[in-house]
Amino acid sequence: MLSGDSGCGKTMIARSLLHELDPSRTEIPLMSNPCRDGEDFLREILYQLGDDSASDLDRQRTVHRIHEIVYDAHAQGKETIVVVDEAQLLLEVSIFDEMRLLLNLQLDDAFLITLLLVGQSPLIESIRKHPGLDQRIATRGALRPLSHEGTHAYVDFRLTTAGREDPVFHTDAVDLIHQHTSGVSRKINNICDIALVIGFSRKLQGIDADWVERLIQAERSDGT
Rank of each mutant, 00 (worst) to 15 (best):
L17A: 15
G132T: 03
I45K: 09
I127Y: 04
H74A: 14
H67R: 13
R43K: 05
L215T: 07
G223C: 12
I137Q: 02
I66N: 04
R164V: 13
I207V: 14
G206N: 10
I45V: 15
F41L: 00
Q106F: 09
D5H: 08
D51V: 05
G206E: 06
L115I: 03
T139E: 02
I28L: 08
A218L: 13
S16G: 09
S201E: 15
E20R: 14
R136L: 02
L49A: 02
E92D: 15
R164S: 15
A73R: 00
R59K: 15
L89V: 05
S126G: 00
P34Q: 07
V84A: 01
E92M: 03
T62Y: 04
H152P: 04
D156A: 13
D166F: 11
I194Y: 05
Q120C: 05
T161I: 11
Q76G: 08
H178I: 01
R220G: 14
I216D: 06
D109A: 08
S126F: 08
E213H: 06
V93C: 07
G9F: 04
R164D: 13
S32G: 04
L102W: 09
D85L: 01
R186Y: 05
P29F: 02
D51L: 04
E20C: 12
L116Q: 01
P23L: 01
E149K: 03
L204G: 00
R220A: 09
H178E: 03
D72G: 08
R202F: 08
D166N: 14
L46C: 10
S24F: 07
G199Y: 10
I194F: 07
D97I: 10
S6G: 12
A14I: 07
L176R: 07
I124S: 07
S53C: 14
L42F: 14
C35Q: 05
V70A: 01
F200Y: 13
V82E: 01
I81S: 01
N33I: 15
E98C: 06
S3I: 12
A218Q: 15
L18T: 07
M99T: 08
Q48D: 09
T224C: 12
L143W: 00
L17K: 04
D109F: 03
R59A: 07
G206A: 01
D22Q: 00
I45C: 03
A142V: 06
F200S: 15
R136N: 00
E213Y: 13
I198A: 09
E165R: 00
E68M: 09
